[in-house]
Every structure is written in structure tokens, then in C-alpha cells.
Nucleic acid binder design. Structure first.
Length: 234
DNA sequence: GCCAGCGTGCACCAGTAACG
DNA sequence: CGTTACTGGTGCACGCTGGC
């Protein structure tokens, strides 16, 4: 067994310390964290002290009503939760290798994509990986990206414009076309240029950021102000 | 002043790895 | 195989603070 001996100012964090720390964060007190972890309060206190010593910064502001996170504690809390999820994922992956194709995958998927490709894709996936637990959730780019970042979800499948997510690993699954729809006989149908479209109310999907971006891009390319009256709906 | 709830300090114990 | 060192835990006493 390899043990790390933390020294002053030399980070040597242990998984148990991070778990204790996250429990303290969750419960707002060392005692509450200890209860939740099935440990005694001195054990958690000692763990927190060692963590602070190893990082050489205070993580908690102790008080009579409990503890509060310092700026360092808040930073570590964000990272620690990612680490914890990665550990859980690693355990699931190892168990999957050991037991066969089991495991857990979290996917955020936009409604439009779900309607188009999910039934067939999922059937194929399920036939190949019958024991994998799949958790699907609705995706809108603004709320899915933070979840991708913190590890809550593994993949997001959504419509988007090319190169709109430069800092992310993106794989194009298929190309999609967007069309504008108006009721039969709507006055906008008699418009001969794009300017005639901008004055009308536009209804754009709520969970698909590419639609409004595409509309803005289209109008900008034509030198026409984008529609001001926009409603986003699910 | 008393009490409750909090964290801290210290002694001690059990399990485990390293070593001769 | 016995000893030693280390880690991580418990139990208890204590001090601090806020509320009544």
C-alpha cells in the first residue's frame, strides 16, 4: 500500500479527506458531516485540519453555528465534487470491465434531437450494451455546459452552429436544415426580402441555441436588423 | 448564570504494511 | 513471525459562543 505523507505547503490530498470536506460543505457543520459519514466529529475535524495543512490555506471559517467556506474552500468544493464524480465513474467503469458491459452514462439531449435520432440510436445502443444504466435529460446549451464541466453529464447532443463551441470536444453526427414556418396566407409570405421578415413575431425553440444564433447570423449577413420580437418556447 | 451546540486537544485502540 | 511505525478511528474533557 502506497501512502502519501503530506508536508506543509505540499498538497497530498486523500480521497477520504475530500469526501469529508464535501460532507462538511453539504451539511454546513463538521458534526453534521461526521454523522452523515458515520464517523465521529474529531475524526472529521482532524481530516479537515490535515487537508488545510496540506494545502497551506484555510478552507473553513469555524463558528459556533457551524462552518462557512473560505474563498479557498469554495474553490476546492467545486473541484472536489468533480473529483468525487470522476471517482464514482471510474469505479463504475472498473466494475463494468469486471462484470461485462455494465456502467452508467448521463446524456443531455435536446428535444428536437431526441425526436429525430434517439429512438433508433438508443435501440442500437441497448442491443450492444444491455446492462448499462442510461440517464437521459433535456439539454439546453446554457444549462448543459456547466453540467458537462462539473461532470454531472457525460455527453450533450444538441443542434449547434459549426465552430460555436470552440473550446469543447465536438463531434458532428449529422447535418440539419432549419426552415421558417408561417401559416398559410400570412402576410410575411408576400415579403420579397429579408427585411420583411424582421418586423414579425418570431417563435424560436427554447432548448436549441443554434436557432436564434442562426437567425442573427442570417440577418447580419444581409445587413438587416434581426427580429426584435422573439418568443422562446419549449 | 446556565445551557446547548460547536470545534479542539489528547490519550488510546485496532488494523496494516514494512522490516529484520 | 514478532516488532515497529503509521494511519485512522473513538472517547472524553475542555473552551468558546449565543440564546434564554
Amino acid at each position: 500500500m502506497i501512502r502519501e505523507t503530506p508536508t506543509h505547503g505540499s498538497p497530498g490530498m486523500k480521497i477520504s479527506q475530500l469526501r469529508s470536506f464535501l460532507s462538511v460543505v453539504k451539511h454546513g457543520s463538521i458534526r453534521g458531516a461526521a454523522r452523515a459519514l458515520g464517523l465521529t466529529q474529531p475524526a472529521v475535524t482532524q481530516s479537515m485540519r490535515e487537508l488545510e495543512t496540506s494545502l497551506d490555506v484555510p478552507l473553513l471559517q469555524r463558528g459556533t453555528a457551524g462552518v462557512e467556506l473560505t474563498v479557498y474552500g469554495k474553490s476546492l468544493a467545486r473541484r472536489a465534487s468533480v473529483i468525487e464524480r470522476e471517482i464514482e465513474r471510474a469505479i463504475a467503469e472498473i466494475q463494468g470491465i469486471r462484470d461485462g458491459n455494465s456502467g452508467l452514462i448521463n446524456i443531455a439531449i435536446s428535444t428536437a434531437v431526441a425526436m429525430q435520432i434517439l429512438p433508433k440510436a438508443f435501440a442500437t445502443f441497448r442491443s450492444r450494451f444491455p446492462d448499462v444504466e442510461v440517464r437521459l435529460g433535456e439539454a439546453s446549451i446554457p444549462n448543459a455546459l456547466p453540467k458537462l464541466l462539473d461532470g454531472t453529464i457525460d455527453y450533450m447532443i444538441s443542434h449547434m452552429l459549426p465552430d460555436s463551441l470552440g473550446s469543447w470536444a465536438v463531434e458532428r453526427l449529422y447535418r440539419a436544415s432549419m426552415i421558417a414556418v408561417a401559416r398559410a396566407g400570412h402576410p410575411v409570405l408576400s415579403s420579397t426580402d429579408l427585411a420583411g421578415f424582421s418586423e414579425w413575431e418570431w417563435l424560436l425553440p427554447y432548448d436549441d441555441e443554434s436557432a436564434p444564433a442562426l437567425v442573427r447570423q442570417l440577418f447580419a449577413q444581409s445587413g438587416v436588423p434581426p427580429p426584435r420580437k422573439v418568443v422562446r418556447c419549449t
